[in-house]
Write a protein that binds this DNA or RNA. Structure first.
Lengths: 337, 337
DNA sequence: GGACCAGGATCTGACGTCTTA
DNA sequence: GTAAGACGTCAGATCCTGGTC
């Protein structure tokens, strides 16, 4: 930091260091990058001066020149959602080690907003993007023409994007069906997410198909959809269980909604697991501590984030890097519900 | 997007638009900003061409020239924490309306990492920062010399930063004491956060002092500290309650830890509220749905984020903007625990 | 008919860094 | 080790053109 003629704070520039060290700007630039075509002495002296002055390079200037700002754009649907928060953590940890910073924004599952966000990311000339396509079944955004490498996660994106890292939702549905069958439940229900996303469609489809193979029908009046909140799920479950007292098991779209469902069951005076069994999805860290502790289908959230980010950096660094699609297998975690 | 001579994708520049429109670069620049010293016809024509070409301005170039990139840096301790996630939402909503984007990073309550993050934010020449000082009681980072306006939130920062937006933690402690007193509990305990942060110190202090005024001692062996996780709190509570069966009420640092405490009590076969009562803090959205539903002390998270961000933008836009300190009053929410 | 004016567009240079010679 | 120039954008000054008084 500096105080210039106007009395206003100004950032230290290479030029300031150069003047103090009596060398050219260029020499300073190279010295601070620890390049080796420069005298050891000079280099050391310059680095000390830079430290003294508290020099912090201007990323904008650097990006303008080098076309890279070491930033990865991330678009997720919701920040305040344990599932995505955990994925984000994985992404962050992966890229931090590789010298990148993430610019993460949330779309709120809104296509217009997602589009705006993508423009913001491009305006900032991020080196690559990781995207959770909002409402993927109706999403027509064209990620391939963003001009930067991208990977979609959690959902493929409607155009079958070049590279995606997802969890197998069909399999999640099948796992749920197998689970309910194996514990002898014959009257299952499904409480899903009310937006056009493939994970909801696939989970329901896998659930339904596999149940049928076991000779268990999934009645259409036992399939409901609502927003992914505690409250909405609470209301939906209350309604469902009041209407239909035969239901003995519910597969719920995610753990956040499951918490609402658990509470609804409690308030209705039903008991878990004797009257009814609940299976959530995602296995967020809270699930283990709910009362009763929630059975769930685990998705490797952190790893999905970490791996996809590592892959993206690979693509950024070497455009001939082979594009991969990775599908993780979910895992059944049985607890008290 | 463009394909240049090398066959590589390149972003559209003002120059490309200028050539197509047969005007100077500058005219394009002004036209796209909808400035009024330009012919209406020309302006419209230029805007259409820009649209056609899918022009997205280069924020780095713009920042280099104007010294502003419309970004606000945000440093919080943890992304995957409902309390901070909600604050972040407030910040995001506030600045989005004002044309700013947030660059949010998490320190993990680690001073070195916080320092690194601040450097990253400065390197990106953000227009201002909102900071949750990690380990504020031992934090010696000097925010006043960052070179950009800043506001600290949740915690003041050890240097009594110029402007802060916090919740009154002393009052939280007092509220807890009053609450336990009013329901006739005489053997309270406190499970706190094991890092040197003022909110923990103040809550404990307010709690203890007020209890004493009511003639209720807070025994030192009933005050424990641990990491802010479900698991650590579960273990701590289990340990505490096994050791000391007289405890009839626990004030817990936050709701995340409270969930672990609730579960510990359940596993020990104790009942809530007859045997023991629990009071959490923050009132995260889950609390209402826990079983039993968690009594908590509400902090206006969203508003704290929204207001502080609005304030910061005010300061950025007008450096003579009066600097304020805002302290929100927490509110007792009594539920089943 | 010359001086003046305003609107509309252009020219020049600079921001801080880094590559090329 | 240096010097020169470029990256894309934008502020400020400059230069037109045609119209008025």
């Amino acid at each position: 930091m500096n105080v210039n003629s106007g009395g206003v704070m100004a950032y230290i520039r290479l030029k300031d260091i150069a003047e103090k060290a009596n060398v050219s700007i260029n020499t300073v630039s190279r010295a601070l990058k620890d390049q080796d075509d420069i005298g050891v002495e000079t280099k050391k002296r310059i680095q000390e001066i830079a430290d003294d002055l508290g020099y912090i390079p201007n990323a904008s200037a650097s990006q303008l020149r080098t076309k890279s700002n070491k930033m990865i754009g991330v678009v997720i649907t919701h920040m305040d959602n344990a599932f995505y928060a955990r994925i984000l953590q994985g992404i962050n940890d992966a890229v931090a080690d590789l010298g990148y910073t993430i610019l993460a924004l949330s779309s709120g599952e809104n296509l217009d907003k997602e589009n705006t966000i993508l423009k913001t990311l491009i305006a900032n000339r991020v080196d690559g993007t990781i995207i959770v396509p909002s409402c993927d079944l109706e999403n027509t955004l064209d990620y391939d023409h963003l001009g930067v490498p991208h990977i979609t996660i959690v959902r493929k994106g409607n155009r079958n994007s070049r590279s995606y890292f997802i969890s197998d939702s069909l399999e999640s549905g099948r796992i749920a069906a197998r689970h309910f069958y194996s514990i002898g439940r014959k009257n299952p229900a499904y409480i899903g997410f009310d937006l056009p996303v493939s994970c909801n469609r696939d989970r329901l489809q896998g659930f339904q198909q596999n149940l049928e193979e076991f000779g268990i029908p999934l009645l259409s009046e036992r399939v409901m959809h609502c927003p992914a909140t505690h409250k909405a799920a609470y209301e939906q479950a209350t309604d469902l269980l009041r209407r239909d007292t035969k239901i003995d098991s519910i597969f719920v779209y995610n753990d956040i909604m499951s918490l609402g469902v658990l509470r609804a069951i409690h308030d209705l005076g039903l008991s878990i697991p004797s009257d009814i069994r609940i299976l959530g999805h995602d296995d967020i860290s809270d699930a283990h501590f709910y009362t009763p502790s929630l059975s769930s289908i685990r998705v490797p959230k952190y790893r999905l984030g970490y791996d996809s980010a590592t892959e993206l950096v690979g693509i950024i660094r070497d455009s001939s890097f082979p594009q991969r699609n990775v599908t993780y297998q979910p895992e059944l975690i049985i607890r008290e519900t």
